[in-house]
Write a protein that binds this DNA or RNA. Structure first.
Length: 393
DNA sequence: CCTCCACAGGAAGCGCAGGAGT
DNA sequence: ACTCCTGCGCTTCCTGTGGAGG
């Protein structure tokens, strides 16, 4: 009889696996001292009972935005002032009502019942602040929430009503275009201050990975070369630290599965491909149906070698937007689904590009007046087989 | 040169589902 | 449970762009 014990053999590689998780926050954050200091200086008025400025933080994924703010928030709490700082992820709490209720539930007792209206939470918040306390809301992934305008308006109004005490916002977004969708008034309110987090460079990533590797792995299981390789790969295509960590942990798992006692370059190389397809699969799986169908069309046309746009300097391998739409429409009718309009299809393409699943180029001169040329952002085989499974041919 | 084609992407409007208020 | 409202996904309509062809 097998027992669970034999599967849970002590790891030869890992000391603490959690260190590599994207949620882990190390005590020292490298290459973000500047941002940490700036954030602290922005928040310090709150400790003295004054209202800090609102702040907007930008940066691509995996540049340490969330890490830095959480880190600073923790330090802030340790000061033990009457002010309170709350972290809210707008992917989950995506409406003013939800954001406020979430905030108030972690702020005051006796409100964790359902059924209160927005105004109840609003009053509760005023009540809390009226005693001269400062409330700071960190809204992570703020671009995922809707009617932010309304929320910002509500909060600025709250500040007007309050004599002492106040509410401040810290918005975090990875899209620079986020502000375009905002009402001019809320824009100027939210953007009292702004900070930008640049992507990590290869040498920075190297130091970061080194630090995590020391905590995550047992001594001498990973070579400096392997770490360098992982940093170089990452810096080359995104600068996303989460991606680098994922690569590292996959490499370690591979080594462990094979009973190796060291993680070498070859595991890192393999892990890179695995992580790549993992991320693609994850992203594709969550897509709405018609986005998947459009992507499927792109993938299978790429694979079947349909007619490609060929133009100067070897920029071939791009598909014509019109051809992709035709194929998408064909797919739909084959599956007995109603295809969407060409206009919708165009915005789907925009979405897919946002997600990095396809890249598009303006045709420019040489080919058909004004069209987009489309290319898959990854290898087509995976996507095609995945979609075949899902839609059945 | 003008017109047509093939497409991009903004604006407006429509029907729908789901939440708030009664 | 019932309306009323509102945001959302789409469609329709429209204006703009640049090559191809008469």
């Amino acid at each position: 009889m097998p027992s669970f014990g034999e599967f849970a053999s002590p790891s030869r590689i890992f000391r603490d696996r959690d260190v590599l998780s994207p949620h882990f926050i190390p005590n020292t954050l490298y290459f973000r001292e500047h941002q940490i200091r700036e954030l602290m200086s922005i928040l310090v008025p709150a400790l003295q009972g004054k209202k800090p400025r609102n702040l907007m933080i930008y940066g691509k994924t995996g540049t340490g935005k969330t890490c830095v703010t959480k880190h600073v928030a923790k330090k802030f709490e340790e000061e033990g002032s009457s002010a309170k700082i709350l972290y809210i992820n707008c992917r989950m709490y995506n409406k003013p009502y939800r954001i406020l209720s979430k905030a108030m539930k972690s702020l005051a007792d006796g409100v964790d019942k359902q059924g209160y209206g927005l105004s109840f939470y609003y009053d509760k918040m005023l009540e809390w602040c009226r005693e001269g306390r400062q409330l700071i809301l960190i809204l992570d992934e703020i671009d995922m929430a809707k009617s932010i305008d309304e929320l910002i308006y509500t909060l600025t109004r709250a500040n007007d009503e309050l004599g002492k005490g106040g509410v401040s916002l810290i918005g975090i977004s990875n899209r620079l275009t986020f502000k375009d969708g905002l009402d001019p008034r809320s824009k100027s309110s939210l953007y009292e201050r702004a900070m930008i987090f640049p992507p990590y460079t290869a040498s920075e990533l190297q130091k970061i990975l080194q630090q995590r590797a020391e905590m995550a792995f047992k001594d001498n299981v990973i070579s400096a070369g392997a770490i360098n390789l992982a940093s170089a790969f990452t810096a080359q295509d995104s600068g996303d630290a989460r991606y680098a960590l994922k690569m590292l942990s996959r490499a370690a798992e591979l080594a462990e599965e094979r009973g190796l006692s060291k993680i070498s370059d070859s595991e890192v190389k393999e892990a890179r491909d695995v992580v790549e397809t993992d991320l693609v699969k994850e992203a594709v799986d969550k897509l709405p149906e018609h986005l998947q169908l459009v992507l499927y069309a792109v993938a299978r046309l790429t694979l079947s070698g349909s007619r490609y746009a060929r133009f100067e300097e070897g920029k071939d391998g791009y598909l014509f937007s019109g051809d992709v739409y035709e194929d998408y429409a064909e797919l739909c009718s084959k599956l007995g689904k109603q295809s969407k309009t060409a206009r919708s299809y165009r915005s789907y393409l925009g979405d897919l590009e946002m997600l990095g699943l396809v890249t598009t180029v303006e045709s420019g001169k040489g080919i058909r007046g004004h069209t987009k040329l489309i290319k898959l952002g990854h290898t087509p085989q995976e996507t095609v087989s995945m979609m075949k499974q899902k839609f059945g041919e």
